[in-house]
Design a protein around this nucleic acid. Structure first.
Length: 457
RNA sequence: GUGGAUGUAGUUCAGUUGGUUAGAACGCUUGAUUGUGGUUCAAGAGGUCGUGGGUUCGAGUCCCAUCUUCCACCCCA
């Protein structure tokens, strides 16, 4: 071991060829579904101006932003003496750019900047890495890929229904079973907060309620008490969290309990989304109305959803919802949008654990040609060209190494077929085709190589 | 940001109350087999024990700091 071996930044990963193939397989499936539903691809830069990012994710989020030091002599333009700064006041003076924290805010920035060119409603999907200075943990990295699809510029509940259909199609395409799409409405939660007598505490209520399936009702109550909810409110909350039965039963029961306008609107929207989904031929068997779903402290204002695995092996693998004023912070108020984000690193882990990736990747090499040295190349190089011309993934071993070494290399790289064309074969205008799985070997005329290999592979 | 665990060969791990030249398996290289891999057999290479300090006659082992990875919390995908 050398004393200064290279390392990766904390929370980042390398992806070996086999992993990249699997990730691409997964992303291709997702991309196909997005495209089928009329979403257009968008890419934005890895870095944004900090003025775009700061303040959009709360105080916690601001701490997790990666900031980029200005180029050049970044101390030269300071207004005051260096010693008079704290790290908080210094940062904006020496860093004006940061790495993107999610894909939604850059999307909002893009929409506002291009408001005159875009024809709303605009449907876009975006698959790019994002960065967070979080402490790494299971399924949590400092660099990870987000996979978002949003429709902006319409408040039609058709979009929500389409998102449900896309989620179903994506799960089917990836072969993931045993999942549920949890559905709720922020409006219902606002109504609930009102019903509990604390209409101003919707935020804390959402944060607490969201943990229900993780920490249980008793601890949710504890947290709410700390947030200033009284016992009467907790008593009123209990039947809401305890609610059981079919989606329809739950909607009915809550409709009788929460009679205020906000709650009624929320319930009606949930019902309508399910109705539209059904009318579009969608499948509601995985859809579950969950009044305890809250999606934390985010900017959502309408329908919200989350995809979970029934075996509980992983946190949510997808989440999203409707936001009424995402572009407002950039000076364009009242534009409604709805979107989802898929956690592809988590989905990868799930598929890996369940063995859902196809055994043969579409990218591995199919054929290796053995190299017998320079005199032999005139015979072998045309073959290499013909095979590639025919679309067969082929390599010629680059050195005149011992055959043992060349075959061993083919074996380690999982190359199923090897072509051997030494002096015997050259003299007879043939090649030996060896199947590395079975060990079988056959001699074929040199002119039949491409057709034979096409049959075998 | 808070709390806990971890680090020994390329990899996964042993290593006794602190005591000579730090081990295994797998992997790697070479040979048995000068045109045949994957199986078998034989030989070989590879470690300043995460890093920096300290205690000690003596530290992989004990203490402190620091970094890494992992786990829980906060938050989140």
């Amino acid at each position: 071991m050398s004393n200064n071996k290279p390392t990766r930044p904390k929370g980042t990963r390398d992806f070996a060829p086999a992993e990249v193939s699997k990730r691409q397989y997964m992303l291709d499936k997702i991309r196909q579904v997005f495209t089928k539903f009329g979403f257009q691809p968008l890419e934005t830069p890895a870095m944004e101006n900090l003025s775009v990012l700061t303040g959009k994710y709360g105080d916690e989020g601001d701490k997790l932003l990666y900031k980029i030091l200005n180029s050049g002599d970044y101390l030269a333009h300071l207004k005051h003496d260096l010693a008079s700064y704290t790290s908080q006041t210094l940062t904006p003076e020496i860093a004006e750019k940061g790495l993107r924290y999610d894909l939604t805010v850059p999307f909002a920035r893009y929409v506002v900047m291009n408001r005159h060119e875009l024809t709303l409603p605009f449907r876009r999907y975006q698959i790019q890495p994002v960065w967070r200075a979080d402490r790494p943990q299971k399924g949590r990295y400092r660099e990870f890929v987000q996979c978002d699809a949003d429709v902006i510029g319409t408040d039609s509940l058709l979009c929500e229904a389409e998102i449900i259909m896309m989620l179903n199609e994506i799960m089917t395409a990836l072969g993931i079973e045993g999942y549920e799409i949890a559905l709720n409405s922020r409006k219902l939660l606002a109504g609930l907060s009102q019903y509990l007598g604390h209409p101003d505490k919707e935020g804390p209520l959402c944060v607490a309620i969201d943990k229900l399936d993780k920490i249980g009702q008793a601890k949710v109550h504890d947290e709410l008490r700390q947030q200033g909810f009284d016992e009467q409110a907790l008593t009123r909350l209990t039947p809401v969290l305890d609610i059981q039965g079919s989606n329809h039963d739950k909607l009915q029961a809550l409709g009788k309990l929460l009679t205020n306008e906000k709650a009624q609107t929320g319930l009606r929207e949930v019902e309508e989304v399910m109705q539209i989904t059904e009318n579009m031929g969608g499948d509601l068997q995985h859809v579950s109305f969950d009044p305890a779903l809250a999606r934390g402290l985010s900017y959502y204002t309408g329908i919200i959803f989350e995809v979970r695995l029934l075996d509980g092996s992983m946190g949510s693998i997808s989440g999203g919802g409707r936001y009424d004023n995402l572009t407002g912070v950039f000076g364009w108020p009242d534009v409604s949008g709805v979107g989802i984000s898929l956690g592809i690193d988590r989905i990868y882990d799930v598929m890996q654990n369940r063995g859902l990736f196809p055994a043969t990747s579409s990218q591995t090499t199919q054929v290796m040609l053995v190299n017998f040295g320079e005199e032999n190349l005139a015979y072998v190089l045309p073959l290499l060209g013909q095979l590639r011309q025919a679309g067969i993934r082929t390599v010629l071993y680059p050195d005149n190494a011992k055959m043992k070494k060349q075959l061993s290399w083919a074996n380690k790289n999982d190359i199923p077929l090897v072509l051997i064309a030494g002096s015997d074969e050259v003299n007879n205008r043939t090649v030996s085709l060896k199947n590395m799985k079975t060990g079988e070997q056959q001699i074929i005329p040199v002119d039949d190589v491409v057709t034979t290999i096409k049959q075998v592979s």
